[in-house]
Amino acid sequence: MSDPVMLRVETISKRFGGLLAVDGASFDAQAGRITALIGPNGAGKTTLFSIISGFQPPTSGRVLFEGENIVGVPPHRLAQRGIARTFQIVQPFAGLTVRENIAVGAHLSQPRRADALAAADEIAARVGLADQLDKPAAGLTVAGRKRLELARALALKPRLLLLDEVLAGLNPSEVRDMVPVIRGLVDQGITVIMIEHIMHAVMNLAQHVLVLSEGRIIAGGTPSEIAGNPHVVEAYLGRGAAQRMLQAGAAYG
């Protein structure tokens, strides 16, 4: 834990009417690592991402990005400051081509149209979309749309990247293709926080795993610590999950 803290979430709560979606959640995300956020459906993971990325204000608590409180900063300002996110439910610019989609993100650092389009080509190659650049985004497969979400976020040249289930809906071979792409992000100096349900990918990619349940962080540690924590596993991932995860992790490592 010697790496500097890039993002500190401090006792964040979010109430929707009678529902406490996030209940005093606190955690740190270290720079230059992949932190995974796991937990059952409805635990508040996506809500937490929405708060960090400025799309929703928390009811209480603070979010510190590189030491500065960013609660209340609008999403486009956070994107300009280096926080990028993908959406769990993909949000392509459906009427635009893949290249034009990615170029919107690239425009953050490239004021000229031609430069942004050229940057889009280069990013598409990094995520495996190079042969689909002229396709309308509406014509992409699920896997293609997930890649597009990632590509657009990368075009912002972020320092912190929030990935919301970029592997969900992909078949096993597509997941195998995506895992090295995500691992490569860290080599490019990007800090990643990922929400993910596909456990073998989490075990493979993340250096730190946080477990969110009913809006609270109930455990945090290395993948093997989490996998070996029978309380977490039995309570939140289902009976027998610990065994499956260890096997999956071994198979991939």
Binding site: S53, F55, P74, P75, H76, A79, Q80, A84, R85, F87, Q91, P92, F93, A94, G95, L96, E100, A103, V104, G105, H107, L108, Q110, P111, R112, R113, A116, R152, A153, A155, L156
Partner: peptide
């Protein structure tokens, strides 16, 4: 052919995605 135009079309296609990509 400008950044403003790309942002404008992005807003037309999907406001939430545009915000996430740094568009005011």
């Amino acid at each position: 052919n400008s950044r403003f135009g790309a942002y404008l079309v992005a807003v037309r296609e999907n406001e939430e995605a545009a915000k996430a990509l740094g568009v005011n």
